[in-house]
């Protein structure tokens, strides 16, 4: 148990560093967007823009999309940097795989909390630059939903997405370019079956756009369990590569 605690301590430290860098960058990006919007006048907007009868924008919501990309980097770094270091320093693969789940939970919870608060503050910031705030994000409405619901939704979605990237990163680390060959092959085969293509696309979009109710929650939890389970099994059977 002592050793499991040590790897969790290491992963926690790594999460803190990684998160600090990300949120500092996002703070600067948001500040930049704020200044651009303030100076650009009423006809030009920067950020997430929804055009319609009235153009609405979100400035702090930009970090939500950046988060989804950040989770790819975060999970790849976990496998390509933290995994070889941990195994080289006498950590078991099982402990590492467990600590990865813990790390994913910490990142999803912290980011969900920060992003939730930011999205509640977003309309105030947008009004300060004399523009119309965007409320409807598909998965929630920042005007009508309370902050707890926002944070919970963000946590669930971020952890699900992180789990899927974790699986991809662990498979990629173990199988290298062969994984992409398999993916290309599957893509080629599936191109003959139109419903497959459409199905995969709809499935991915649904994760990020569907409001969480009981059924959607069950779907996301299932995806998370399957992804984490497969990533765990893959990681405990992976040897480290010479260099990364």
């Amino acid at each position: 148990m002592e050793n499991t605690k040590r790897i969790i301590k290491y992963q926690y430290k790594e999460s803190k560093i990684s998160m600090s860098k990300f949120w500092l960058t996002m703070f600067l990006v948001s500040l930049f967007l704020y200044i651009i919007n303030k100076r650009s006048g009423p006809n030009v907007s920067s950020g997430i823009i929804v055009s319609g009868d009235i153009t609405s924008i979100s400035i702090l919501g930009v970090s939500l999309f950046a988060l989804l990309i950040y989770l790819i980097i975060f999970n790849y770094e976990n496998l390509y940097k933290n995994f070889p270091m941990a195994i080289s320093f006498s950590v078991t693969r099982k402990d590492f795989a467990l600590s990865t789940i813990f790390k994913g939970l910490v990142i999803a919870a912290t980011s969900g909390l920060i992003q939730g608060v930011l999205l509640k503050l977003d309309p105030i910031i947008v009004r300060l630059v004399d523009k119309t705030p965007m409320y409807d994000f598909g998965i929630f409405n920042t005007n009508t939903d309370n902050i707890i619901y926002l944070i919970f939704t963000l946590f669930i979605i971020l952890f699900t997405v992180s789990s899927m990237w974790n699986l991809l990163a662990s498979l990629n680390y173990r199988f290298g370019y062969k994984l992409w060959i398999v993916f290309l092959g599957l893509y080629f085969i599936s191109s003959f079956i139109r419903s497959w293509h459409a199905g995969i696309w709809t499935f991915s979009i649904n994760i990020l756009t569907t409001r969480i109710d009981g059924v959607q929650l069950l779907k996301l939890v299932l995806i998370t369990i399957i992804s984490q389970g497969l990533a765990y099994l893959n990681t405990i059977n992976t040897n480290i590569k010479r260099k990364a």
Partner: peptide
Amino acid sequence: EGIGVEDI
């Protein structure tokens, strides 16, 4: 061969 990570 080291610790498997070099850019660190």
